[in-house]
């Protein structure tokens, strides 16, 4: 059975150790200056507080030393994730007498992201590709954040046009519905 209440109870002067601990980096306030109990606790906690602060400062140099290692760990994991993504959902591009030509959903999503990211005044949030109304088409659902002051109607129309053009030219697939939802407004400072 775990004991849950220890020394976080107030000192006899009414202050809690948590309160005192959070104030250790500051000079003593009026209460502490006149309170022998708080002064004694300050002294007791000082070596721990000093070493803890130094530990946190030391994290910065530790971070620098770890940067290359973390880059390599991240790289390995991302390689695995990208391979997993490429093996994901496929969409039908063409049905011919010789067979069906399919395309990776990842390629479609990357194209979608590339198009939307090229348009200023919006930020792409959640997005997905869905099968279209016939086998050789797809639909899209896109959530966007709109930059404050921008014309949402003009931008969404522009996005639809750009998507239809790019998917027709670069991939050769027609787009059915392009549902766009403006879910947020952001300020670009």
């Amino acid at each position: 059975m775990e004991i849950t209440q220890v020394s976080d109870l107030p000192y006899s002067c009414g202050r809690s150790e948590d309160e005192l601990w959070s104030r250790l980096s500051m000079p003593p306030d009026q209460h502490e200056l006149g309170c022998p109990y708080c002064q004694a606790q300050r002294q007791r906690l000082a070596p721990l507080a000093k070493a803890t602060t130094q530990w946190k400062i030391g994290n910065d140099s530790e971070n620098e030393a770890d940067t290359a290692l973390l880059g390599s760990i991240r790289g390995r994991v991302m390689d695995g994730i990208k391979a997993e993504i490429r093996r994901g959902t496929r969409f039908t591009l063409r049905i011919t007498t010789l067979g069906t030509l399919r395309i990776s959903g990842y390629v479609l999503l990357e194209t979608l992201r590339e198009v939307v990211d090229s348009i200023r005044g919006v930020a792409l949030r959640t997005h997905k590709i869905l099968p279209g109304s016939h086998p050789e088409s797809i639909s899209m659902s896109i959530n966007l954040a709109l930059e404050a002051g921008e014309d949402g109607v003009r931008l969404t129309n522009g996005i639809r046009d750009a998507l239809r053009a790019r998917f027709a030219q670069a991939i050769g697939i027609s787009l059915d519905d392009i549902d766009i939802n403006l879910e947020d407004v952001f300020h670009d400072f």
Binding site: M78, I81, K82, I85, G88, G105, Y106, L109, R113, A123, L124, R125, T126, H127, K128, N143, A145, D184
Partner: peptide, 13 residues
């Protein structure tokens, strides 16, 4: 943060 999470949840590596 919202943008990063939303995009990652949509499969953006």
């Amino acid at each position: 943060l919202r943008t990063l999470v939303a995009r990652a949840q949509s499969g953006d590596p």
